[in-house]
Computed example of a mutant assay.
Amino acid sequence: MKFAVIGGTGLIGSRVVEDLNAAGHQAVPHSLSTGVDVITGQGLEAAVAGADVVVNLTNSPTFDDASPAFFRTSMDNLLAASRKGGVGHVVILSIVGVDKVPGLDYYRAKVLQEEALKAGPIPYSIVRATQFMEFMDATLSMTADGDTIRLPRTPIQPIAAADVAGVVAEVAAGSPVNGVVNIAGPDVYPLDELGRLTLTAKGDGRRVVTDDTAGLFAAADGDVLTAPADARIAPTHYTDWLS
């Protein structure tokens, strides 16, 4: 099968391309660096022409109120190009619990992306993943102030990027589910405890202060960011990934 992986040079996309090619498929990565712009549409029709499946792993450059416009425009452009190119399956990567955190602009934007895909003319699959292990450093930096990092007790179920990519590649190579596949890591941590664990493992002397109003994840109520009952559980534990 032939795959066009839009956003195929990034953290997840590069691994998806590698996994698909290793399985004997023909997966081609596309991104701004290869001349494909999902906002202007430049290079997009050529990128998806002749592909059996398009995997869209592009991401908004910001997490603020500009993100809805990015996902709306990029999804509209991608669907139009895919329909013209005869694509039979479109796959996107989203977030577990994305529709349950209306207080975050970025999450509302991802919901718009999902809705655009569902309403579009092409069979689809949506893979929703929990928070990437690779993003923990960025999460810590968001609320860092000198030697103190403030984090809420929001339950988080981190998943390794390699595990995410493996499922995305598997779903893309299968028949469209016309629905959602949820995936999560094997362990749940309160975010403040996860922060302490991370700092200790890295020999970082900063301290975590529990603050249920701090950072992006303070907007998430209860355990909405953890695996729902139907989720596939990935094998990589956070402590193993850290080491």
Rank of each mutant, 00 (worst) to 15 (best):
A234M: 07
D145L: 05
G24I: 06
V16A: 12
T210M: 09
S82D: 06
K100G: 07
D145E: 09
K110P: 12
F217N: 15
F3K: 03
G35W: 10
W241N: 02
R153T: 13
P102Q: 04
I233K: 04
F135D: 05
G215S: 03
L44A: 03
M1S: 15
N21S: 15
M75L: 11
S33I: 13
A160N: 08
A4C: 06
A23C: 06
Q157N: 13
R150Y: 01
M133A: 07
P68H: 02
R232H: 09
Q157T: 02
F217Q: 14
A169E: 04
V38S: 04
A66T: 14
T62I: 08
S14C: 11
I156N: 00
R15E: 05
V177Q: 15
T210Y: 04
A162K: 13
N77A: 13
F135R: 00
M142C: 06
A109S: 13
S82T: 07
F217H: 14
D192W: 07
G195D: 12
Y106E: 05
S125Q: 08
A173V: 02
T40E: 15
G8T: 08
N56C: 10
G146W: 08
A138P: 00
G195E: 13
L117C: 08
S60W: 11
Q113K: 03
H89P: 01
A46K: 04
A161C: 00
G13P: 04
G120D: 14
Q26L: 11
L216F: 14
T143K: 08
S33Q: 13
L11V: 11
I92E: 01
T130V: 08
P102F: 06
V180M: 01
G7V: 14
H237A: 14
A116H: 09
I126C: 00
A184V: 12
P68L: 08
Y107V: 14
A229M: 09
G88M: 06
A169S: 11
E45C: 10
A173I: 12
G86E: 15
N77E: 02
D240S: 11
K202S: 06
G50D: 12
V111E: 07
A119D: 14
D19S: 09
V180L: 01
A234V: 10
P123Q: 10
L112G: 14
G86V: 12
V55E: 02
L117V: 12
Y238M: 08
V53M: 10
A144P: 13
T40A: 15
A27R: 03
S82W: 08
D204V: 11
P190Y: 05
D37L: 08
K84F: 00
V177W: 01
P123K: 08
I149G: 03
I156E: 11
A23Q: 05
A165N: 03
A144I: 11
L20M: 11
A169D: 05
L117Q: 09
V181E: 07
V54A: 00
